[in-house]
Amino acid sequence: MRKTTSDVSVMGAGESPYTRHPASGTTTEQVLADAVRRALSDANLQTADVDGFGVSSFTLDPDHAIDLAWRLGLRLRWLTQDTNGGASAGTMLQHAVRAVESGDASVVVLVAGDLMDREVHLKMVAEYNRATADHLVPLDMLGPNALFALLTQRQMAAEGLTRSDYGRLAVAQRSWAALNPGAVYREPLTLDDYLNAPMVAEPLGRYDCVPPVTGADAVVVAADERATGTRRARVLTVSARYNSDDQAGDGLSTGLADCASELWDTAGHGPADIDVVSVYDDYPAMALAQLKDLGLVAGGEMPAFIAERVATRELAVNTSGGQLSAGQAGSAGGMHGLVETVRQLRGQAGQRQVDNARIGLVSGYGMVLYRYGACANAALLEAAV
């Protein structure tokens, strides 16, 4: 029988500041290293304390995890490198928990991030994988906007949603972002602003599409006894599914639908227990799909759920502003939500702090192999001292 909780916690978190236009000479290595240093400082640890390290980045090439570890001065017993974008944080967290539980490592730093200027971004979306290069580039479809526009149209029909419903989610997240000094887009956003913004791919407008930024996020994972006496976020459980629909599904359901019951049963909690949630939000439709798959909203109830719980911020969804307002630093997309949830559970979220935040939910999603995201995972964390 599976354990209901782990004996492992996140005891530190850090973010290298996000920026839409990185300064000349900025490198991926620099922003990753900065996030690592910030996370270790938050945990009151030094590089000498670290014996486990994981990294996810699209733009670290030609270097690898071991190269970055060497440049950071890390001597390790455990090392991993993940290439699965928005799902990388959850995947690495799952592995790190097992590494600490088994004794393979005692203090693990996980970091994800990228340099995303215009040239780098265009090159990445054109060469994302073989399916992109062979089938999408010849159609002059750079990036996933057109694919997720089709998915959004399908979701609108299935759930009775309008563009205003998606706009209410985007506006609510911008309101959270206004309280987050690290968000790239903090200026007020109204529903009229959202509806009148330039169209990108029907029905997706400017504020439906995640803006690429440069930056990185990191967390420090260690056994509970290592964090005794400090406020921490205990990792209750992590569940994941990869290639759940064999790229043959309609995209309205993610792999989270297949692992949600396992997630809740293992942790001994349910959707009603959640105080703060960070879902991967490259598009509003995908944030809603994950909330549904995880049981926070039932099918057919999305319009009322958005109006009554998300728009009012009764349910604390993506309190950093999410990627739609804070920005998407490449592979840091999933790690951004983990860092925000850890900050909320440790009482470090400043003006956006959710009162008495005790249970946090983080989801990761991503990697368009041919149609839609093939990777999905979720973690439940609990505030502890």
Rank of each mutant, 00 (worst) to 15 (best):
N318I: 08
T319K: 00
A172E: 01
S106Q: 14
F305T: 09
Q328D: 11
S320K: 04
D265N: 13
G373E: 02
Y207C: 04
L380I: 02
E119F: 08
A216Q: 03
A69N: 03
A131I: 01
M199E: 11
V310E: 04
R75E: 12
R174K: 13
M335H: 13
A23S: 12
R352I: 09
Y242V: 08
V235S: 10
S102R: 15
Q155E: 12
Q155P: 00
E15A: 13
P198F: 11
T254Y: 14
P303Q: 07
L338P: 06
D246F: 09
D355T: 07
T26L: 06
C375M: 12
V339I: 05
A311L: 04
L263Q: 05
Y370H: 12
Q30R: 13
H64A: 09
H64T: 02
L195T: 12
V213A: 13
V310P: 07
A298W: 00
S24H: 09
L40H: 04
A43V: 13
S57N: 08
L380A: 07
T214F: 03
V342G: 02
V238L: 06
C209F: 07
A65R: 07
E127R: 12
A233H: 02
V50R: 09
A240P: 05
D245T: 01
S325C: 14
M286V: 14
V354G: 01
S253A: 14
A69W: 08
V368I: 15
D134K: 10
Y365M: 11
V171D: 01
M367E: 15
S175P: 00
A149E: 09
L45N: 04
S164E: 14
